[in-house]
Design a protein around this nucleic acid. Structure first.
Length: 556
RNA sequence: GCGCCUGUAGCUCAGUUGGACAGAGCAACUGCCUUCUAAGCAGUGGGUCAGGGGUUCGAAUCCCUUCAGGCGCGCCA
């Protein structure tokens, strides 16, 4: 609906220019916005105010000149008004608004699907937690944001790949294997010391016990240090943890297209290849026995090590190969979702892309701020000691997947999030998940009631939508009609949280409407019209929730 | 010290990318069920948009600066 209106305004301006009524050289982009207040119409534009200074005329006068030449080619505009300092307010014909309901019911689950991303490939890489421990709630937030964003981009027409990067080699994995190994020996009664930087969580013991069950005590008397069997421990531990991660991810409703192994980058010599490519560009140098990448030449604070002086590679070395791979795979946009504590990493990754000759705008990074859990208004302690953190699993088990996903999306991702466990569990309207789902279930019940009374469900030809003439009804219709715009905004700004706000708003106008008006009554035509409205509301709630992967119950 | 993020109602946060008198949900008070789900609704109070300066016809939004909080500044991830 927006674009045709923009064109009408634009054509009027062009016409004015052609007739010498306006002398501007270039026409500013015409921006339509939805005014905050209803009396200002359905859309408004500040075009006249932008043009006015260049014309040396008053904005309202310019608006008048433009409106004199405006031709409504769509036939959906009721009137134009000049208001305030020079806004042009646009009022859409109500009949046209009502027809949106037919579109919604007709398109059903496809309402809200767009084509703006058509032909473009986007990769969203998220979670990517090291397989050295179970997923915690911070990962959960990243998963909710990444997966929902991917769903939204998909709805917007992009081809989306969801990817998890597994750090399945390197020092941390090695320490994991060592930790389990030592724990195994302890279980067998050997008195071994645990170094400071080893993993100590309860889960290490779980893995060690599992190892013991499967493989017995055959390594009971091996030498400490780096015995042959260590590789077996490393492999076993990592596989075990990965299986937990996969299970938690799946139960959280996320389905990755690709699990990308860091190790394969080395197996395929891509790390070496990337480094030699950089070398050929003259941005690599040796110092103190290490190999450095001159990232400062590309906006970073300091240069970074790729190969340590003990010959081992830093994670940064594989990251550059990985990001090079991402681009080589032909994505138009790559989105990395990182914990906010990694923000210092951004400039060095951008440096890589620039050094390799790519436009680093292709990379978008979303930072996920910390989550603090509250129970009865009191923060749940976590992260104090090693191994003492709240896992994603615990939260899913306690509050359920629906509330968990929704709550992670109630704030924009780079803001701290307070997650109230009691609120998330509450089956009451102050819980926004409940409130939205309840609107859906309520409508399902109305439909059921209508059917029980023998009322045939309304169809497109069998309905008089002009009976929906109350303010509340128009405002519901307009909110429903804006759903595709919300999807577009979320997709372009990469901010999925806007969807949760939208759904709360929709539920918040439906409930009062329900309370005030009877849908199914003896007035059959009116009942059908209202039922039709309700079906449209139900459809949009369901479509919105499904992007969040939150269920839309028929009965509550 | 340098860099990034944050600062909006008592609390938790939105704010359409610079627009029209600053919004919502909690919490607090006051009301509403012989009707399709009261698991709901209606009403009331509540603000120096951290402070100061600047740009602009117009600023919570952009620039500078001060203050407060968080994070980062490793041949860790």
């Amino acid at each position: 609906m927006r674009d045709p209106i923009i064109n009408i305004i634009k054509n009027a301006v062009i016409d004015c220019k052609g007739k010498g009524l306006l002398s501007i050289e270039t026409i500013p982009p015409i921006i339509l916005e939805k005014p905050r207040r209803e009396e200002f119409g359905d859309f408004s534009t500040n075009a006249a105010m932008l043009i006015a200074p260049k014309e040396g005329k008053a904005p309202r006068k310019v608006a008048e000149i433009i409106l004199n030449k405006v031709v409504d080619t769509t036939g959906i505009i009721k009137k134009f008004e000049i208001a305030g300092p020079g806004f042009i307010n646009i009022f859409i014909d109500e009949g046209h608004w009502r027809n949106v309901l037919k579109e919604i019911v007709l398109l059903n689950e496809k309402f809200g699907r767009l084509t703006i991303g058509k032909g473009k490939k986007i990769q969203v890489e998220f979670v990517s937690a090291n397989p050295t421990g179970p997923l915690h709630i911070g990962h959960g937030r990243g998963a909710a944001v990444g997966d929902t964003l991917a769903n939204i981009l998909d709805a917007a027409g992009f081809e989306v790949i969801r990817e998890y990067y597994i750090n399945d080699r390197g020092r941390q994995i090695f320490i994991l294997g060592q930790s389990v190994f030592l724990c195994y020996l302890r279980l067998l009664g050997r008195n071994v010391a645990f170094p400071e930087d080893f993993y100590k969580g309860e889960y290490i013991k779980d893995i060690a016990e599992e190892f013991l069950t499967k493989h017995g005590d055959k390594y009971k008397n091996v030498q400490l240090g780096f015995p042959e069997c260590l590789h077996e421990f490393i492999d076993f531990s990592m596989r075990t943890i990965l299986s937990w991660i996969e299970r938690d991810i799946k139960d959280f409703g996320v389905d990755f297209d690709v699990w990308y192994s860091e190790k394969t980058l080395f197996d395929r010599k891509l790390v070496d290849k990337t480094i030699s490519e950089l070398k050929s560009k003259g941005v690599i140098y040796g110092n103190d026995g290490a190999t450095w990448f001159r990232t400062t030449g590309f906006g970073d604070d300091k240069d970074r090590v790729l190969i340590k002086n003990d010959g081992s590679f830093t994670y940064f070395a594989s990251d550059i190969a990985y990001h090079r791979e991402k681009i080589e795979r032909g994505f138009d946009t790559i989105i990395d979702i990182w914990g906010a504590d990694h923000h210092g990493y951004e400039s060095r990754i951008r440096a890589v892309l620039k050094a390799l000759g790519y436009d680093d705008n292709i990379l978008k990074i979303i930072f996920i701020q910390l989550v603090s859990l509250l129970r009865n208004g009191v923060p749940v302690p976590m992260g104090k000691r090693e191994g003492e953190f709240v896992t994603l699993r615990q939260v899913i088990d306690e509050v359920g997947r629906d509330a968990c996903r929704f709550f992670f999306l109630m704030r924009k991702s780079d803001a701290h999030l307070e997650f109230d466990l009691e609120l998330a569990k509450k089956q009451a309207p102050e819980n926004p998940v409940f409130y939205i789902q309840y609107a859906h279930a309520r409508i399902a019940n109305i439909i059921k009631h209508a059917e029980e009374k023998g009322m045939a469900l309304p169809t497109h030809n069998d309905i008089d939508l002009s009976l929906l003439n109350q303010n509340e009804e128009m405002s519901i219709i307009k909110t429903l009609a804006s759903f595709p715009d919300i999807i577009k905004d979320c997709a372009l700004s990469l901010e999925p949280h806007r969807l949760t706000f939208y759904l709360q708003e929709l539920a918040a106008i439906f409930h009062p409407y329900y309370n005030k008006n009877r849908v199914v009554s003896n007035d059959i035509p009116l009942s059908k019209a209202r039922l039709f409205l309700c079906i449209a509301v139900k459809t949009v709630i369901k479509n919105g929730l499904s992007l969040l992967k939150v269920s839309a119950p028929e009965v509550m």
